[in-house]
Amino acid sequence: MMLGVLLRIEWLKAVKRRSFWVAVGAFAVFIAIPAVERIRNVHKNPNLSYALPESWPDILGAAAGLGPFFVGVLMILLVAPEFTWRTARQNVIDGLSKERFYVGKVMLLAGLISFFIAIAMLVGVGGTLFSPSEGGPGILRPTDLSYLGSLALSLLLVGSAGLMLSVLIRSSGLALGALFLYLIVEEAVGRLISQAGGGLRRSAEYLPSNILDQLGNDLAHYPEVLADVNSRRMERGLEPREFLDVEVLAIAALVYSALFLGLAFLSMCKRDL
């Protein structure tokens, strides 16, 4: 069966789901607010600008803020109930194998990632049309591309965590609880570790949600901006901010996602429905 067919099946299930559109709408509003704010400021103050490519960090940064959680939560809402409604079982009876059911959900994740990025682009890039600023030269710089890729990876990271939790826990309420509990626990553990200092502190940077934070932070992707920020921090006697290399972040995100997706696959194949 072709991947397109699997994606179409998932699409049929999602379009009729109210929470899907609520999440999509909320996300669009969420990223539109800073864009609207920007454009209003530009109209008031001609020294500011809102144009491509200079505004990519703003556009992508807004999406990177809550985007991953929207995708993670949506994955849980679209996958976990299939087990309580027993529709996963019925899909398998109707001819999807367990493997194909799983691949369908991975296609759903890919679809959500593309969809969310498309919304971010539409809102952000669409917003620049309402701005009087002149941008350029060019539309997309290599650094913008790297930030865009990182946005996709951070959506993938949390989305695959959502998929894994749904398949392992098989209940949307509990899976959502587990996702948030994990984030709280990791936050606490991360803080403890970083207080310890030294090598341990380094390793805390590799925890999934720290990888996520760094991937989503524009400072990790735009060295000029980071240099600027750090020189101002120096003036105020603060420590400079440091980020892992983008390549390292990307590899870490891919490794975690592969781990989550792999665990979901094993659980899906091994357990009865």
Binding site: K13, K16, R17, R18, W85, R86, T87, R89, Q90, I93, G95
Partner: peptide, 17 residues
């Protein structure tokens, strides 16, 4: 299995559709 049709226990459908 493509030649069979089956339901197990209760009818299993998407309640919101």
């Amino acid at each position: 299995r493509a030649r069979l049709g089956a339901t197990l226990e209760t009818p299993n459908f998407y309640p919101y559709m």
